[in-house]
């Protein structure tokens, strides 16, 4: 059974239709990626799933339960989380406090403490900078923090929106390695990326979005080899 199922999702911004009825699913344990150009509706899709935007029609089913119309904080409690585009760390809080915020739904303090230590093990850079304001971190460190923060809620499904955006190539590779690692340790991943090549290389399955519609789907490998995808997203 699919962990996340999106059915015929339609979203409007005013009179403009941003999502024209998209459907896809993410099975437990998979890495699924949505690729597509700027403005295709990838971020809108993520925000609708998390309840930050209210769709006009359609269904989002998580773990057998409809979550359309549910407030975002309740959705997070179900075990979903999103690493938003542009990282959106809390710049006025320290690294440590950002991680605490990530564990907001967890009432067990000693568990939170040990979780934070685990995040420091996963991202040693964050441990070194735990007392610093997040706003002072570099882009790569902020991306690590955004991912670490998302992990603090123990998500079953982690959605990442453009995690490689604005990062140096070496950091991009690190971010993708980390996503792969998180997946191998049991987190289901839904990844939105403009860096189609990287995304397809780690994805089990992929969907191509174009102006509010899903136009192509298949395994990561299939899409990486498809002429249409090569031409449009992989530079020939």
């Amino acid at each position: 059974m699919a962990l996340l199922e999106v059915k015929d999702l339609q979203v409007y911004y005013g009179v403009i239709q941003a999502l024209k009825g998209i459907s896809f699913e993410v099975n437990e344990g998979e890495i699924v990626t949505l690729i597509g150009a700027n403005g295709a509706g990838k971020t809108t899709t993520m925000q609708s799933i998390m309840g930050l935007i209210h769709p006009k029609s359609g269904e989002v089913i998580y773990d057998g339960q409809s979550i359309v119309g549910m407030p975002t904080n309740k959705i997070v409690q179900l075990g979903m989380t999103q690493v938003p585009e542009g990282r959106r760390v809390f710049s006025e809080l320290t690294v440590y406090e950002n991680l605490l915020m990530g564990a907001y739904i967890n009432k067990d303090r000693s568990k939170v403490k040990s979780d934070i230590e685990e995040v420091y093990t996963l991202f040693p850079r964050l441990g070194e900078r735990k007392g610093q304001l997040a706003g002072m971190l570099s882009g790569g460190e902020q991306q690590m923090l955004a991912m670490g923060r998302a992990l603090m809620s123990h998500p079953k499904l982690m959605m990442l929106d453009e995690p490689s955006m604005g990062l140096a190539p070496i950091l991009v590779s690190q971010v993708f390695d980390m996503i792969k690692h998180l997946n191998e340790t049991g987190t289901t991943i839904l990844l939105v990326e403009q860096n189609a090549e990287k995304a397809l290389s780690i994805a089990d399955r992929a969907y191509v979005m174009e102006i509010g519609e899903i136009t192509l789907s298949g395994t990561g490998k299939e899409l990486a080899e498809s002429d249409k995808v090569k031409e449009a997203y992989l530079g020939g």
Binding site: Q47, M50, G51, L52, P71, T72, N73, V76, Q77, T81, Q82, P84, R88, V89, F90, S91, E92, L93, E97, L100, M101, G102, Y104, I105, R149, A150, S153
Partner: peptide, 22 residues
């Protein structure tokens, strides 16, 4: 915790929601 959540909401409401903050 509530105080820090106030700082978080003040800085970025959507990101705060994604933390599970009501």
């Amino acid at each position: 915790k509530t105080g820090r959540a106030m700082v978080a909401v003040s800085e970025d409401r959507d990101a705060a929601k994604l933390m599970g903050i009501n």
